[in-house]
Amino acid sequence: MDKKLVVSSSPHIRTIESVQSVMTDVLIALFPAALMAVLLFGYKALLTMVISVVTAMAVEALWLRKRDLFSDGSAAVTGLLFAMVLPPAPPWWLVVIGAASSIIIGKQVFGGIGYNIFNPALVGRAVVVMSWGARMAGPIWPQPQPFAFTADISAVTMATPLAAQQEALSYSLASMFIGVMPGCLGETSTLALLLGGAWLYYKGHIDWRIPGGFIGTVFIFGLLFGGAFYGGPFETGLFHVLAGGVMIGAIFMATDMVTTPVTANGRLIFGIGCGLITMLIRLWGSMPEGVTFAILIMNGVTPIIDNFTIPRQFGGVKKSA
């Protein structure tokens, strides 16, 4: 048959992107941070990540009654992201309950992938922070031991740089950029996270507006209100960007496609809001770090932001109030 003209209905142009390909890209983007975590915190960090990913995938497969463990890959991403925001050596049951909560309370009760209101990995983190606060905050953070794979990292523990100014001063900006400081296993290395972010940006999965708004707001807020304790206002601003979970939050959590605004202006507002709440909690709140709750709160107001930032169609008329 030699048809010159094929008549079909739209769509005519299809993307080769699928949920699975996007999730695989996110996993690739997380690889540098995961590698850094293993280099800094040894086998326990690796174990934590494996338990979390396996639990998340198993719970998702059980819930959906699927044989395919990897499936669309979203459970693996949620599991890995959840592990990234845990201390390097939590007890196994905490990882299992948290990863299961991520999938069940964070995602499946809302109807599964694409329907969840809140970032599933951060829901899991919120659940374990609220439940076992003593294991998730305070001077419980192991000192990083670079290239010591089998070291018992739990031997020496301390507070994170955000907990007290004295702690903060013992880490140079350079060592914080590379990631040699105590913290959650995937959040310490800004360098590795930026590499992953660059990959996601290159692939077109993230919009610069959310991380830009988030990190920019944190920097400006730290510069203006952080005090000059870190050698000057400019350095203090940088300190707030590099310390804690801002980088992983801004690059991987706040850019989740499902739970963030779809409009360009909305994304900028979302990023700025995340930065603002993070800094309010850090500087004047009772907790040392506020990235988790900042992003969860902004997830909650995402529909409102979307509603207020609907772009006008080209040639359209502004709706009268």
């Binding site: 309950i97 309370i105 009760v109 659940v127 609220m130 439940s131 076992w132 606060g133 294991r135």
Partner: peptide, 22 residues
Amino acid sequence: FEPMILFAQPAGAFIALGLLLA
């Protein structure tokens, strides 16, 4: 035993009620 304190807190009351209703 380290209990899951979340469920003793008000936020956990909402989550527990939601799961119970389901």
